[in-house]
Nucleic acid binder design. Sequence first.
RNA 1: GGUCUGGUGGCCGAGUGGCUAGGCUCAGCUCUGCAAAAGCUGCUACAGCGGUUCGAAUCCGCUCCAGACCUCCA
Length: 489
Amino acid sequence: MHIGNSLSREKERFTPYNPPYVGMYVCGPTVYSNVHLGNVRTFLTFDIVYRYLLHLGFKVRYVRNITDVGHLTGDTDDGEDKIGKKARLENIEPMEVVQRYTNDFHDVMRVFHILPPSIEPTATGHIVEQISMIEKIIENGYAYASNGSVYFDVRKYAENHNYGALSGRRIDELQNQTRALDGQDEKRDPLDFALWKKADASHLMHWPSPWSEGFPGWHLECSVMSTKYLGKAFDIHGGGMDLKFPHHECEIAQNMGAHGPEEPVRYWIHGNMLTVNGRKMSKSEGNGFTPEELITGNHKLLEKGYSPMTVRFFMLQGHYAGTLDFSNPALQAAEKGLERLMTAWGLFGDLAPVDGAEGHPDVDALRDRAYAAMNDDFNTPMLIAVLYDAVKVVNSVAGGHMPITEEGISALRALFDQFAHDILGLVPETQDGAGTEDRSDHLMEVLCAVRAEAKANKDWATADLIRDRLGALGVQIKDSKDGTTWTFD
RNA sequence: GGUCUGGUGGCCGAGUGGCUAGGCUCAGCUCUGCAAAAGCUGCUACAGCGGUUCGAAUCCGCUCCAGACCUCCA
C-alpha cells in the first residue's frame, strides 16, 4: 500500500513502525460552533483510512482530539479564547459551550457514518501533561518564559532543525512576512509561538502553572496527546490542509524540541478543502452548510435537500488530496449514481446462478482492481469505478444476460460487502419508520398481485391506474419478465 | 511577494508515456401492452506555447488562469 506523504511530497510504501499495530492521530474540531461540511470531509477522509487499515487487518489505535481550549481569535496578545468568547456571548459556562458542540460534532459524525476513534482526548484533560512538556522544552533550551507566558524559540530551534520542512517554508522569508504584526512585545522574535499564555482578568478558562495562571498555547495539545497515546514516533498524522502551517509545523517543532531528533510522524496526510463555487467553505464566508440545512435543503445555495449518504458518496467520488467543489448538479448526479449502486446491491437477495459456458464475470479481477485502487493512496474514486463495473455484472446477471456460478455470486456479494460497506461505509438509507417496512411490503405485494391479474386480463387501464397512483405516492413500479418490483422514494 | 495545489469531454471527477476511467446528462437501439429499470451503442476530452521522445494529455521549460496557505479555520 502506498500513501501520499505530505512531508516528502511523494507516494511512499506504507510500513508501520510496529506491525500489525498502527498509530494514527487526526486533529479534531475546536468545539465552539457547529461543524460544517468542510469539516466533515476531513473526518470522512480519515474514516476511510481507518476503515481500510482495519480491513487489511491492522490493529489501529486512532486518536482524534477535541480542542476545548486554547485557540485565540487573533494573533495579538489581547486575542480572546474562542470558547470563552462564545460563552460570554451566550452567557453560559465555557464547558457548556464545549459540551454542546461536542455533542453536535458526535451527532454529525453518526449521521455520516463516520466511525468513532479509539481515543478522543481533550485538551483540558491534559493540562498537566502540557505543562510538563513545556518544562522539557525549556530544559532543552528551545523555549523561554516571558512575563508569565512561555514561547517557543523558533530561531534557536532552527539552528539545528529544519523548521518549515513540512510546509516548504523558509525561516527568513517567514521573518519578513511576520514583522508587521503587532502585540508581540513579549516575544524575542516574531516567529516564536506561544506554549503557555498568561490569562488576563477577563479570561474565563485558566489553570495554574509554574509561570502564571493561564492557558496552554495553540499547538501544544496535539503534540502532548499524540505522544501520550501513540509514543514519541508514530505512523500517521492527519488533518486538513489548512493546518499544515503553522499548526503541524509547530507540532513537529514541539515534539522534537521536547523529545529529541527523531521525526515524530512517519506519514503526514492532509485532506484538501471542500469548496463552494470555487471558494473554500468556511464559516467567515457564510458558505458552509450544517447537516440540517443540507438534509432539508434550507439554504440559499442549495436547490434541494441531500441525504447524508448522498453527500458521503459524493465526497468519495473525488480524491481526498484534491479540492472538491460542492455544487447542486454534482450532488444530484451523485444522488442518482448512488441509487443505481444501491439498487444493484439490493438485488443480491434474489440472484440465482445462471447456466452458460462462456461469458462468466471475472470477479477476481474486479477484486484485484478494487484493492489496487485503495492501495494507491486510498483512491476511492477509482474504487467506485470498479464497483460500477460490478454493478453492470449484477444487473446483467439479474436480467439473465450473463451466466454466473454460485461461487461467482458470493464472491460478488463479498466484493460489495467489503468495499462498499466496510471500507466506503456506504449503507442503504433507512426509510422512515423501519418498523412499518414489513407491512408496507406486504401491502405492495397485494397491490402487485391485483395489478398482475389486471395485466393478465389486458386491463391496461386498471394496471396503469395502480402504477400511476402509487407513483404519485413516491412508489415506482418496474415490470420485468419475471415479475414486478418496486422502490420507495 | 513567498510556499503549495490544480487547470481533463455538456457537467462532476480519476488516471497513465502508446491500448475504453467511472458517474450524471443527451441521442439511438434491445427488452416491454405502454412506461420505468436494465443492457448495448454513440457524443472521444485533457488551458496555451515551446522542448525531450518513434510516440505526450501524461516528462521538462515558459506563459496564462484558478484556488489554498503565509492570522484562527478541517
